[in-house]
């Protein structure tokens, strides 16, 4: 039993670490798409690790099955939600960091050309 406890706490700890790093990424990353990326990827791995850790704490009964269902549900819905979020941002015309930099560059060049023409 002791081995299971140790393994489960290691899984929970790494799960918490990934969840926390996702939260940090959400705050520290520069633009929308990188933030969604940080949150969604760490979220998936954190969910897997935490539920795996909890699975080892159950006595392999109905609760185990319920946790498995929750895991399956989250594995399907959470990436889909991130995908829908990023896609609708793209659909709404939001540019990535590189693209918006390029656009600014082009605008600057145009301005300079206009000034040179005058």
């Amino acid at each position: 039993m002791l081995v299971l406890d140790i393994v489960s706490s290691i899984l929970l700890m790494t799960g918490i670490f990934f969840g926390f790093s996702g939260a940090v990424g959400l705050f520290r990353f520069p633009d929308f798409f990188t933030r969604v990326h940080a949150a969604s990827i760490t979220d998936s791995i954190a969910v897997i690790l935490i539920i795996a850790g909890l699975l080892l704490q159950t006595s392999f009964d109905l609760n185990t099955a319920k946790l498995m269902f929750i895991l399956m549900f989250l594995m399907i819905t959470s990436p889909t939600a991130s995908h829908a979020l990023a896609k609708s941002a793209r659909h709404g015309g939001l540019l990535t960091l590189g693209e918006s930099k390029q656009q600014q560059k082009q605008q600057k060049e145009q301005m300079q050309q206009q000034e040179a023409g005058q």
Binding site: F73, I76, T77, A84, K87, H91
Partner: peptide, 19 residues
Amino acid sequence: AGFKGHKVLRVVAKLIIPL
């Protein structure tokens, strides 16, 4: 029409609604 492109969303919705 805006949602026509959301193929992933459609597939996942089909999977998950019965559940």
